[in-house]
Design a protein around this nucleic acid. Structure first.
Lengths: 239, 239
DNA sequence: CGCCGCATTGACGTTCGTCAAGTCTAGTGG
DNA sequence: CCACTAGACTTGACGAACGTCAATGCGGCG
């Protein structure tokens, strides 16, 4: 099996500000360019890595859309996140040198492969990169705090509202519309992430549509009343 | 207000194997000893840090027991973890230079204060420390994946069983009994962490007691049938 | 001793899961 | 090009699990 890999450089990548530290000197840029060993294409439905697989690299999403999921021994699984361009996948593997979740492409995708030993090596020389790596891991911890809050104390409508707002906000940061989005995942995957069944996801979409908050046409979502969504997430606070 | 701080060294701390990397050379040990600026005592109910507070240091729990919790604008809060001796608190603060959760002592406690800029500085020189920091952050990410799985796809009994097994396993690693434990938190705090109401926590404890799986006397828990708890967490797998 | 916070227990209601039927859409192959 | 199919989605009826509300018990501390 031939891996589809390509040689490249970060320094002129249009996603640089998303996955790399800012304000590097020219010589630092040269060092950081050595981070990405190569790229790899992953077809929709294929795994970038699987539970149990040896950890060697972090991956920066260049194009496409991923989900990560953990699985119990008895077959239940939980989607732990959705990743889009500029986001980093694979941090779970560092602690035990093996991955503890699956990363699956939800559409044809391309990632930059960053060998972790190289990350550590260059981090020791380039302080900005070192701090950047720490920030990325901290950001992931904080994101997961948010998911725990969502799963632990919100009801179905609030969860879905929070989910939509988060997605659209991340898409907007990448230059897409702040009111229109296409879901790359199924209702079941949304449900798994949000701790609800696919039927409940579907019903809640329909309810939002009935109330004129959003328009739903399969995976195409149009947000008609973002304020209403925000109110749902924060019931007490009235804007 | 006078902070209760004390000067100390990691190299002969009995918790070293819990919060520091192993196999350091003598000169590396000297460097790593510079990590801990001082210690601080926190009385039960006091905060180690609060949401919004400027981030400057990570904290290693020396004695005592903490909870961390995030709060929504409308006052709901979610316990994101419980920390005991040897565990690290404060990773949430790195990404935005401000803490995003509260850390509260559930009993009188003492922590080692490790200024983060010093951690980064020494990490650049001592590769083992650098990797250790990465592992600690990765471990926290993996732990949170587990909590997401618990919150997203388990029912009350499974959650509480998983919680008890996790607690007792961590206590055992610190030399305590593997069948007996004292809960440092209230039913409400357990419920917040596990995404259920305090009444459900109480009822589930009572149910376990009725079935002879545990013995409950207020916060004192005796695990009589650990296998039964494990079966609850993994319904399909029969030991 | 009496108070207060924490915990337990019961009765009842709501939310969401389960099961089942039916619809829509994209992709496939004749 | 169109019919066919599989997978994804929607919707309804019903029930179980858990939340809510309220009463009561218990234990530690001033």
């Amino acid at each position: 099996m031939i891996k589809d890999t390509i040689k490249v450089a970060c320094s002129n990548c249009n996603l640089r500000e998303l996955c790399m530290p800012l304000g590097l000197s020219d010589e630092e840029l040269v060092r950081v360019d050595e981070l990405v060993a190569s790229r790899r294409r992953i077809k929709r439905g294929q795994t970038l890595f699987q539970t149990g697989e040896k950890f060697s690299s972090l991956y920066a999403v260049r194009t496409g859309f991923f989900k990560t999921a953990v699985t119990t021994e008895d077959g239940r699984d939980q989607v732990t996140g959705f990743q889009m361009a500029g986001e980093i996948i694979g941090l779970d593997g560092i602690v035990n040198d093996h991955h503890t979740c699956d990363a699956i492409a939800l559409e044809d995708a391309e990632v930059c492969i960053m060998p972790f030993d190289r990350i550590e090596e260059i981090s020791r020389e380039v302080g900005a990169l070192q701090h950047h790596v720490h920030k990325i891991m901290s950001r992931e911890i904080v994101r997961e705090h948010g998911v725990m809050l969502l799963l632990g104390s919100m009801r179905a409508e609030e969860r879905l509202a929070a989910f939509l707002l988060n997605l659209v906000q991340r898409l907007q940061a990448r230059g897409f519309s702040r009111s229109e989005l296409i879901l790359r995942m199924t209702r079941e995957e949304i449900g798994s992430y949000l701790g609800m069944k696919l039927e409940t996801v579907s019903r809640t979409f329909s309810k939002f549509a009935d109330e004129g908050i959003i328009e739903v046409k399969q995976r195409h979502i149009l947000i008609q009343d973002a304020e209403a969504l925000k109110r749902l997430v924060n019931p007490q606070v009235c804007h």
